[in-house]
């Protein structure tokens, strides 16, 4: 019945030996025309003109529904808060974007400890790469962009953990192929953390370390169950996203753009 040279997978007998599924593959064209997407130097504001594509505009009732929500967001979301020097994305084991966010969290946590006159500071940060939902484009960065990057209601928490429990936690981080970290350097070998240095020194198994992370991870949302063995738990009552926006704004006011360099803080050991 069919020309078999066009058929991409075998006919299979189905229920009652009778129904067959065939799958015909439509090949995608890989035309070699020149690139039509030229990335602009600066990110356009949160608003984008192409939602106005002529074809998607024809159903005005539909577009009006989008507009009715969009108009409520545009003012705040289009506010430019900084400039990013080069585009950054997440990636395992280490990425510029996760380095940038984890380093910012470390600074935010340390400042919190000083301001609240705590008896300790923050030793390290763990932030899951999966919680960073979009890349950071080159150019102007708007509030809306940070909402898209960090959309969750995650709040900052500091937990105290003994060195040996910290090692279990870092082994889980290694098991996931790496996450965003700051204040700590580690290799990943056979899904285990190796050559771990916190603040440049090896982990003292009996000492208590203070880790800044987000409530989602500490409460068992992301599979890092070792957080359960924490000794202390402090809610900062601060949202990660709001604090990041403040941090980015303040840096920009001080003439500092968004940028990061890879420094080998987390790496695979062959």
């Amino acid at each position: 019945m069919f020309n078999h040279s066009f058929i991409c997978f075998h006919m299979k007998l189905y229920f009652n030996n009778s129904i067959r599924i065939l799958f015909l593959l439509l090949i995608f064209s890989g035309c070699s025309v020149s690139s039509k997407i030229n990335k602009p130097d600066h990110q356009q504001n949160y608003t984008i003109d192409s939602v106005m594509d002529s074809n998607s505009q024809k159903d005005t009732a539909f577009v009006n529904v989008i507009e009715s929500y969009k108009s409520q967001l545009d003012g705040e979301m289009n506010t430019v808060i900084s400039v990013c020097d080069e585009e950054m994305i997440t990636g395992k084991p280490e990425s510029k974007l996760s380095d940038y966010i984890a380093d910012a969290m470390l600074a935010i946590g340390k400042e919190f400890c000083v301001e609240n006159q705590l008896s300790h500071s923050v030793d390290l940060v763990i932030m899951n790469q999966g919680g960073i939902r979009t890349g950071m484009p080159k150019g102007e960065i708007t509030t809306g962009r940070i909402f898209e990057m960090l959309p969750f209601k995650n709040k900052l928490v500091i937990v105290g953990m003994k060195g040996d429990d910290l090692m279990k936690l870092l082994n889980q981080v290694a098991g996931f192929g790496g996450e965003g970290i700051s204040g700590v350097k580690m290799g990943i070998k056979d899904k285990q953390a190796v050559d771990v240095l916190v603040n440049g020194t090896s982990v003292d198994l009996g000492k208590t370390y203070h880790i800044l992370s987000i409530d989602y991870l500490v409460n068992g949302g992301g599979g890092l169950s070792a957080f359960e063995t924490r000794e202390t738990f402090r809610h900062l009552h601060l949202k990660l996203r709001s604090e990041m926006i403040k941090y980015i704004r303040r840096d920009y006011e001080n003439g500092k753009h968004i940028s990061a360099e890879l420094d080998g803080r987390i790496y695979n050991v062959e």
Partner: peptide, 13 residues
Amino acid sequence: IEPFPKGDPEFGG
């Protein structure tokens, strides 16, 4: 709901 901004490093536009 709206397309990715054109400058998105991975999914622009």
